[in-house]
Amino acid sequence: MSELQQRQIQLEVLRYNPETDTAPRYQTYSVPCLEEWVVLDALNYIKDHLDPTLSYRWSCHMAVCGSCGMMVNGEPKLACKAFIHEYKEGQIKVEPMANFPIERDLVTSVEDFITKLASVKPYLIPKEDKPVSAGEFKQTPAELKKFKQYTLCINCMLCYAACPQYALVPEFLGPAAISMAHRYNQDSRDGGRDQRQEVIASDEGVWECSFVGACSEVCPKHVDPAGALQQIKVASTIDWYKEHLMPWMKK
């Protein structure tokens, strides 16, 4: 792997112009790709040299901002993390994230996810208010470990693009929003679980999930949203038994 290898790749890109098109259509670009490139580099090449009208989102180019999610050969991927050398065929199909309406070309509307994320109160709700003078909220490494993994979510929405449940039932709160609720529920400094339960332990919440597990397979940050949802199911079931069979044991 000494000198930079170059390969001509046919990029088949789904395009849609809301002003003129009634349906999306594919357009193929022939791009001289370096093997070290990621799909995002190829899109940038198109934008710079072949077709400035191509629209797509990106920002960090390092799998941190979460804005470059798209379907690469039918798989939800971050375009900045999908390496050209992993695609042996000379053709790569690039489409906007599945399960989201197409705004323009590879840009999708994300309002639905933003609303759902806000609905789970993804912030610390302290158990009791404490004046600043009372000092910091302390946490042990073990307590931190309980939720650390869920803080790695970059809101890229690839898990929604992979989730067939979300595709069939758009009301489903979905993997990332519920995992974020779990992140705060698991935080020893937080006291907001009861408030979040109303939203996440509902029919449109975890009970819409049938544990396909696709979300965890595609998550670029190994958040394992599917795991979070099952853990919430277990905890909610225990709540139910406590409430109905052992009312005296009220949490």
């Binding site: 999306p24 039918g74 049938s210 696709a214």
Partner: peptide, 29 residues
């Protein structure tokens, strides 16, 4: 802006044929 987002329909009956991981899920079910 005259924006009309395009919604791609998903088949209610054959969706699981679109990816091996969905077929695996169906096999489990």
């Amino acid at each position: 802006m005259n924006s009309k987002p395009y919604v791609r329909e998903v088949s209610k009956t054959t969706w699981f044929l679109s990816h091996p991981r969905y077929k695996r899920y169906m096999a489990r079910e």
